[in-house]
Design a protein around this nucleic acid. Structure first.
Length: 360
DNA sequence: AAAGTGATCAACCGCGAAAAT
DNA sequence: AATTTTCGCGGTTGATCACTT
């Protein structure tokens, strides 16, 4: 394992002195409440010390056999807990930060195919964990469904996703690519890091990003002069948060050329004047007035003005108007072909569908 | 400024499948 | 072949942060 994350006593000592470390420990002690009896397994938030034990043990011995790993590493944790901590947080290729528009699009697309198969979906979003995707779905997607008073699996909501959400994501991605190409590509990493082509060069120095919107590093640790050390930045649970990318590594690792998202990217970026741009044209062909899904909509979206919310500024009545009523089988919606829904167990909608139906 | 509310995310739990003994 | 252990997944919870009132 060439993670380059060996940690020595120096780092552990530095850790003991670091604000993040002490904060995390204190926070954990407060969170767990009770002192840990000898032999008892710890629960709750991980301390920096525990993180380092785990990281360094895995660096030396590799992962797997989690129960014995936990014991051997001297961690009073279940193997399960160690595995989770490693996979969701400490792994060097874990990407942190906002879910990009392209990632959102991919999640919507893949969820339509596979449902709540989070781990399977996560395989197509390099650096993203199933837990993160699951959280995204629950907090963002289900929130929108709730605002619409729709079941997240209802046809109407899926129509909203298909006819409103996804097109707007496509639109945004297009805009991002346009601006990034106009700016010489430099903006792509910021705008759409998930699947943006590698923009760093082999000669570029490693980039450390100290905010929650970037990605590319292992949890809250960074490569020190001779080992992994906690990143002294944003207080976040344990009090550390950072990202790191080797030259040309982040984007390359973030997206292998042969995965679904890559195909998606090519779909989105191939000839903007014909491809997705044309999709948008069809998506927005018409909007019959209509209520829908309990009709609570109008203005409800006002509560979610997040900058990355493609629905921002659009009332739910508008959204619902765009897709027609569920109880009429969606027949009132226009602007999109009626897809074959008989087999939506397998695939309700997909970008391939959109292309097949003369939308690109 | 304080209290209340909602959003986010790390972590835990239970269960079934796979692997090991 | 049967039993035990380990792994991985999906669902859920709780703490914290951010925003609103």
């Amino acid at each position: 394992m060439d993670m380059g994350m060996m940690c020595g006593l120096d780092e552990l000592e530095a850790l003991a002195m670091s604000p993040g470390g002490s904060a995390a420990s204190a926070a954990t002690a407060a969170a767990t409440g009770s002192s840990e009896d000898e032999g008892d397994l710890r629960r709750g938030p991980w301390t920096v010390e525990e993180d380092l034990l785990l990281v360094n043990y895995i660096a030396a011995h590799g992962e797997g056999r989690w129960n014995s790993l936990a014991r051997s590493a001297g961690l009073k944790r279940t193997g399960k807990s160690c595995r989770l901590r490693w996979l969701n947080y400490l792994r060097p290729d874990v990407r942190r930060g906002n879910i990009t528009a392209e990632e959102q699009l991919l999640i919507l697309e893949l969820h339509s195919r596979w449902g709540n198969r989070w781990s399977k979906i996560a395989q197509h979003l390099p650096g993203r964990t199933d837990n993160e995707i699951k959280n995204y779905w629950r907090t963002r997607v289900q929130k929108h469904a709730k605002q619409l008073r729709c079941d997240v699996n209802s046809r109407q909501f899926r129509d909203v996703v298909r006819q409103v959400w996804m097109p707007r994501l496509v639109e945004r991605i297009q805009a991002e690519y346009s601006s990034s190409s106009a700016a010489g590509g430099g903006g792509a990493v910021q705008a759409a890091p998930a699947v943006a082509p590698a923009t760093t060069t082999a000669s570029a120095p490693p980039a450390y990003h100290h905010h929650s919107g970037t990605y590319g590093g292992a949890g809250g640790y960074q490569q020190g002069a001779d080992g992994m050390v906690p990143a002294p930045d944003k207080a976040h649970d344990g009090g550390y948060y950072y990202s790191y990318s080797e030259p040309g590594q982040a984007a390359a690792a973030a997206m292998s050329p042969d995965d679904t998202s890559s195909a998606l990217r090519s779909t989105l970026t191939t000839d903007a004047s014909h491809g997705a741009a044309q999709q948008q044209h069809h998506y927005y062909a018409a909007t019959p007035t209509n209520e829908g899904c309990g009709g609570a909509g109008g203005g409800a979206a006002a509560g979610s003005p997040a900058a990355d919310d493609v629905f921002a500024g659009t009332s739910w009545s508008e959204l619902l108007a765009a897709v027609g009523r569920e109880d009429d089988g969606g027949s009132s919606k226009v602007g999109l072909p009626d897809f074959e829904l008989g087999d939506f167990e397998d695939s309700l909608w997909s970008l391939e569908d959109l292309c097949l139906h003369q939308l690109c």
